[in-house]
Design a protein around this nucleic acid. Structure first.
Length: 715
DNA sequence: GCAAGGTC
């Protein structure tokens, strides 16, 4: 009786084998190590995630023929293929399948895990050994007792779970491949202008791009509203604090009232304290970190991208410094060995006092989050390392580790105690109040200061009168919503069910690499290309752009999992729905094509760096499209223009003419297979035109000449 | 040249 166990990753294979008996490792290739338990004749093969992926079949390799629409209609357009570089894994599965009479699928206990085990790996097993017995190992952790217990209680394979994953893969493939190709083909000439080879469409990425677009529109359409604040700076024993009028903020329709109040009290020198109360507020320590929460923590505090944060956590995991970083659980199992880790931190030069205190006070139970998803424990440091430790490969690893370690230690800490002091003050009968929040006892904040809000010092007040430093009248405007950061994008995606813990950082980065978004000072903006695509898709593809689409797909996938519906029915239903949208796009395609021809008009019009010579206030637009090229003032009220030569390729240079300070243009003329290059200043050239002489070109200039693109005085 | 989902 030989048994083959297949797992999703090395870590699981090793844990399972070790739980079942003494282990012998066999290094098959550079990337594959197999774990044997000779005493029980068990062979554990670890995979590396999926073995197979959907790709287009040979007939559908071309992006144009057959037309992309057929990827949706022809069921033979996509097929599962082996992912490159993974053949050692398939070879090993086949080899051991022949030798074993029992195959246990031990991939992760989730949908993708079932898909990997039952739909990627199992067919290779059956191909070699059709009669093999098949069961599934359903683990809710990789702890020894759990493994032994579940190994003795194997389950019937959850094929419907795997099917659900299969349906997801098929749907994403036919939508992504067909739409990406159709949109790329349609926008070809525009994409050339943006210097990108293709653009991409996908259920998750395009929905995310749409949400980023919506935020940009919100900002663009935002109408700031003025509002007014009446504040008072008041003296206390050690300094000054600010109190606010209780009617703040005054909206613009109440401006007169606000100004009257201000005028009434502006010269007051004394306020009367009518209330001075204090409340103690208990702040609980944070809860353990799952992947999403860790990414939020890291991107927020280190200002790194989500993708970088994930990569750093992964490298720390591979170096055995932290636990597995892809987890949905933020609750520890009751028997998780925290003591072992805390003992290590007892020796840490910076964390030891805090840790010793924890142990002394028997604070050895961490806080609990919302759910134990039964996959992996929350993200936890496994080692106590100083910054100088050579196991860190770079500075970022140190900083990520520091945050994760401190956060972990904070889970055991005492509550922090805040004091909320509320002061009520009358200034000539006008009610003011001030709230001063100060820290009384740091508790867990001592180890995790990055979780601290801003605190002020408590205010000592003697008597019931308070001297006024100044009464202020502040005019402000409401602000538009902020652009997304990595932190807020992650939250946005989670809220809208877009992507998974592993793919969210990848998809944020993908939009950047496809030139659909750009990251400016940690904020994400949509590019002109992204904007063009979304604005045009909104008209025909709104149901696909909205995150609602993913949500509906998810609901249907859930029905496959719960055996309420069949894979084929769900896939065909989505196929039909998407085909309708696709046809709508094809019908409207001609409109889009005509928009592309006029694109420069509406969007990326280069501007001169020098101002319009007529109004001298605004730059000029360099219009350079089919049959039309000229310069026109960008100011609607001026709108004066300068003509440009009809022939040759024009290039707007940054340098300026020494005579009139206007930008110089380079002209490249092709004649008899040779390039002739000359320069002109449009202002000089136009005045040359008016005087009907040909002196407008720079080479006719008496005083200056163009050397390396610069206008320089002749000797 | 394409998706999104695993994992390294």
């Amino acid at each position: 009786m030989a048994t083959l166990i297949i797992t999703e990753k090395k870590k699981a294979a090793e844990a399972i084998a070790k739980a079942l008996g003494p282990v012998k490792k066999i290094k098959k290739t550079k990337i594959l190590e197999i774990f044997l338990v000779p005493s029980k004749n068990i062979n554990v093969i670890p995979l590396r995630g999926h073995l197979l992926e959907y790709r287009n079949t040979d007939v559908f390799k071309s992006w144009t023929n057959p037309p992309p629409r057929e990827i949706i209609t022809n069921h033979k357009s996509i097929k599962k293929f082996q992912i490159r570089g993974l053949s050692p894994f398939i070879k090993a599965i086949k080899e051991y399948a022949k030798r074993c009479d029992h195959c246990i699928i031990g991939t992760d206990a989730d949908i993708e895990g079932c898909n990997i085990g039952l739909f990627d790996a199992l067919p290779f097993v059956k191909q070699e050994n059709p009669k093999i017995k098949i069961s599934q190992l359903w683990l809710s952790s990789l702890q020894k007792n759990e493994i032994i217990n579940k190994f003795n209680n194997l389950i019937v394979p959850k094929y419907s779970w795997g099917e659900s994953g299969e349906a997801r893969a098929i749907i994403d493939a036919f939508i992504g491949f067909s739409a990406t190709r159709e949109i790329t083909n349609t926008l070809r000439s525009l994409l050339n202008k943006f210097r990108v080879r293709f653009t991409s469409i996908g259920r998750v990425q395009t929905s995310l791009l749409y949400l980023i677009y919506l935020r940009e529109q919100e900002i663009l359409n935002f109408v700031p509203e003025p509002y007014f604040l009446i504040d008072a700076d008041l003296f206390h024993i050690n300094g000054v604090f600010r109190a606010h009028h209780e009617l703040n903020p005054f909206k613009s329709d109440n401006e007169v009232n606000a100004r009257q109040i201000f005028h009434k009290i502006r010269n007051e020198k004394i306020g009367k304290i009518i209330d001075n109360s204090k409340k103690v507020i208990r702040i609980s320590p944070p809860t353990p970190l799952n992947t999403s929460k860790a990414l939020v923590l890291l991107t927020k505090n280190l200002r790194i991208s989500a993708n970088t944060a994930m990569q750093i956590m992964n490298s720390l995991y591979l170096n055995k410094i932290i636990t597995y970083p892809r987890t949905d659980s933020d609750v520890y199992k009751s028997d998780f060995n925290h003591n072992e880790i805390l003992q290590k931190f007892k020796l840490h030069p910076q964390f030891k006092y805090y840790t010793i205190n924890l142990l002394k006070n028997n604070r050895i139970n961490p806080t609990k989050g919302k759910k134990d998803m039964g996959d992996h424990p929350p993200i936890t440091p496994l080692e106590s390392l100083e910054v100088s430790n050579s196991r860190f490969e770079n500075n970022l690893q140190k900083r990520v580790y520091d945050l994760l370690a401190r956060h972990y230690l904070a889970l055991f800490g005492d509550e922090a105690l805040e004091s909320k002091q509320l002061l009520k003050i009358l200034i000539k009968e006008e009610p003011f109040s001030a709230q001063i929040v100060s820290l009384i006892s740091p508790g867990f904040l001592e180890i995790a200061p990055f979780l601290k809000p801003k605190y002020e010092e408590e205010i000592q007040i003697i008597g019931d009168e308070i001297p006024i430093k100044e009464i202020l009248f502040v005019e402000k405007e409401t602000q538009p919503p902020a652009r997304y950061t990595d932190t807020s994008l992650l939250k946005l995606m989670e809220k809208n069910h877009l992507g998974t813990k592993s793919t969210r950082p990848v998809i944020i980065k993908l939009l950047l690499t496809r030139s659909l978004t750009k990251r400016v000072k940690h904020h994400y903006l949509i590019t002109d290309l992204g904007k063009f695509i979304i604005e045009n898709l909104i008209e025909v593809w709104l149901p696909f752009l909205k995150p609602d689409f993913t949500k509906r797909v998810e609901e249907k996938l859930e029905e496959i999992k719960d055996k309420k519906r069949k894979l084929k029915d769900v896939v065909d239903e989505i196929r039909k729905e998407f085909l309708k949208l696709f046809d709508k796009f094809l019908i409207n395609k001609h409109k889009l094509i005509s928009k592309i021809d006029n694109y420069q008009m509406e969007y990326t019009i280069p501007l001169t760096s020098s101002n319009c010579p007529y109004c001298n206030k605004n730059p000029m637009k360099f219009i350079n499209i089919k049959n039309k090229r000229f310069l026109v003032c960008s100011d609607e009220n001026c709108k004066k223009f300068l003509s440009l030569p009809k022939n040759g390729k024009l290039e707007l240079l940054n340098s300026v003419c020494s005579i009139c300070d206007f930008n110089i243009f380079k002209v490249v003329l092709r004649k008899n297979n040779r390039s002739i290059i000359y320069y002109l200043c449009p202002k000089c050239w136009n005045s040359g035109l008016k005087s009907k002489s040909s002196k407008g070109f720079c080479n006719n200039c008496n005083e200056y000449q163009i050397i390396k693109g610069q206008c320089i005085k002749k000797f």
